[in-house]
Nucleic acid binder design. Structure first.
Length: 531
RNA sequence: GACAGCUUAGCUCAGCCGGUAGAGCACGUGACUUUUAAUCAUGUGGCCCCGGGUUCGAAUCCCGGAGCUGUCACCA
């Protein structure tokens, strides 16, 4: 990739990368590489926000690689020394967590019983999650950073600037909290809990703080080596300085806190990282997605109905705009991704840099994402054809694209699986069967007779002809044939529209189709629906 | 109240370092099909939120305003 071309690109990812380039051009990083950080709170499991942040940060890193030779890495930082404040609802053995309230997450036994601590469990889940998408990153544990002494120098600097640091945070706090606020949270040597207590004394010269422990004893602890954790805003600044972070993006909800953290970095004589604030996800009505309300889509739901690449595509689109995240955006994202991927090989470098697919595939041309059929078509096909299996779907696909097979179009095969799920979860529940009236009953009965007379391997057209004549011979004049077919769908499939019925029978199987019609005549579907 | 984002076709949105307004869906028409769905072709449809400014020229830049949405206790 030509550097000039890359520098001319104006997508948000390149604009971000250029900010980083300007930063390291001004003061080259002493560590010899550029650090992109993403943060993660391990009291819960990874979710779409986690994915979005790492995904987007990776895109900025990719852009940066096009405009600079300085090596770079992404750090996934886990805040696993935070005290546990709330027992998550979806965890087994909640009493274990209950008993360890307030302790650092890495000091609490794993309620799943698999890892050495609750945080280790959640960290493992995070890594598993990130790895499953192929992200490249270096994992860092807050606890390890504190305990190993990696943060010591910066912690001492924080202590020397205790008043200034505190002053940065105070304007953001409510009156009550202001009174007791301290940027340092001592870990009680007795209970192991991370304490939110006012400090009795701050001793920069000895590198210690004095506070009243839970049992009332006056205790003095060094701020170094994991004896003390920093409250989250200074904590953020702490690792920006200690790890010399060059870039970190954050949601707009953290804007003011990020600004405070930046101030603290300056107090310590550092340069705050570059970064921008992405907007939060909204639901269909433009309201904020929250777990308690249960509105909007979860990451699992998205991945249940569409490939991860489509989600990455969606996340690439204007991160600074609030994005509505609900089911209907998925098919569009999938199809736009498909269109992008099809276009990519034909584009010159400048155009590639404007193509989301380039970012999604880390600047490479994937050769296994081709599909001759788009997702919208598959969704329609699944609903129309009553498809419960990929095989049925493939039968219909072959009518349109005779050359396509699951073997030569694995990505399409994957999409077919998603379309079937969509059908089963969204369309099936809305089906409304009705009973056949007398004319329909006569025609359907005639159809059964005709189908029984056909050879097992009769083709679409032959069957279609029989369907047609069954209607014609049983009271449907030519101009009413439309309602004959409509009746077939309403009685047998529970929809007013369906596939070409001859094709349907050929694929579904003549015997099975006969059984289906007989069930319909008996009223099985209507009864089942009533029950 | 402070700050941020959004406001462009019926819907969802793209475009924005200024140069005759775009896509998908929906809708209309046609082709194909012994019905429908699908597919293909084609078409209708915009005071680009309002007002001002800069400019030969503004959806795009600047100023002012309106509406919608979000964030701003504690915790992280």
């Amino acid at each position: 990739m030509n550097r000039e071309t890359a520098l001319a690109c104006r997508t948000w990812a390149f604009e971000e990368a250029k900010k980083v380039l300007a930063r390291v051009t001004k003061t080259p990083p002493k560590k010899g590489y550029v650090v992109f950080e993403t943060g993660y709170g391990p009291s819960g499991l990874p979710h779409i926000g986690t994915f979005g942040e790492v995904c987007r940060t990776s895109m900025v890193q990719l852009a940066f690689r096009q405009i600079s030779d300085i090596p770079s890495k992404i750090i996934a930082f886990s805040d696993d020394m935070d005290g546990l404040r709330k027992v998550p609802s979806n965890v087994p053995n909640p009493q274990i967590l209950e008993e360890n309230m307030g302790k650092a997450l890495t000091s609490i036994p794993d309620p799943y019983g698999k890892y050495e601590s609750f945080a280790h469990h959640n960290n493992a889940k995070l890594r598993e999650f990130l790895d499953s998408f192929g992200f490249e990153y270096e994992f860092l544990s807050s606890t390890e950073c504190y305990k190993s002494g990696r943060f010591n120098d910066t912690l001492l600097k924080m202590l020397q600037n205790y008043d200034k640091v505190t002053k940065c945070v105070l304007p953001l706090l409510g009156e009550e909290r202001k009174a007791t606020y301290s940027p340092f949270l001592p870990v009680s040597p007795k209970s192991g809990r991370v304490l939110q207590v006012p400090l009795k004394e701050v001793k920069p010269e000895s590198g210690t703080i004095v506070f009243e422990d839970e049992d009332g004893t006056l205790t003095e602890l060094p701020v170094t080596d994991g004896n003390v954790k920093m409250q989250w805003r200074p904590d953020w600044a702490l690792r920006w300085v200690a790890l010399d972070v060059d870039y970190e993006m954050a949601g707009t909800d953290l804007r003011s806190s990020a600004d405070v953290a930046k101030q603290i970095v300056r107090v310590l004589g550092g340069t705050p990282p570059e970064g921008f604030h992405y907007e939060l996800f909204l639901d269909e009505k433009g309201e904020k997605i929250s777990k308690s309300k249960g509105n909007g889509l979860t990451m699992e739901e998205w991945l249940h109905y569409a490939p991860a690449e489509s989600l990455a595509y969606y996340l690439f689109q204007r991160p600074t705009a609030g994005k509505k995240l609900y089911f209907d955006v998925i098919p569009k994202a999938v199809d736009e991704y498909i269109a992008a991927i099809e276009k990519l090989p034909t584009e010159d470098d400048a155009a590639k840099l404007n193509n989301p697919a380039w970012y999604i595939h880390n600047g490479t041309l994937p050769n296994d994402k081709h599909t001759p059929v788009n997702f919208a078509l598959l969704l329609n096909l699944a609903s129309a054809s009553n498809a419960h299996s990929k095989e049925t779907m493939w039968g219909f696909i072959k009518l349109y694209k005779p050359d396509a097979t699951p073997e030569n179009s694995p990505f399409l095969d994957q999409l077919v699986g998603f379309a079937v799920r969509y059908y089963e979860n969204f369309v099936l529940p809305t089906k409304k069967y009705r009973a056949a009236d007398d004319r329909e009953r006569a025609a359907l009965t005639a159809l059964v007779t005709k189908l029984k007379a056909l050879p097992k391997n009769a083709d679409n057209e032959t069957i279609q002809t029989e369907v047609f004549s069954a209607g014609k011979e049983n009271g449907y004049p030519k101009e009413e044939l439309r309602s004959w077919f409509q009746a077939i769908y309403e009685v047998l499939i529970g929809q007013s529209q369906g596939p070409r019925f001859g094709s349907f029978v050929a694929l579904y199987g003549i015997d099975k189709s006969i059984a289906l019609i007989e069930s319909g005549l008996r009223g099985d579907f209507v009864n089942k629906q009533a029950a």
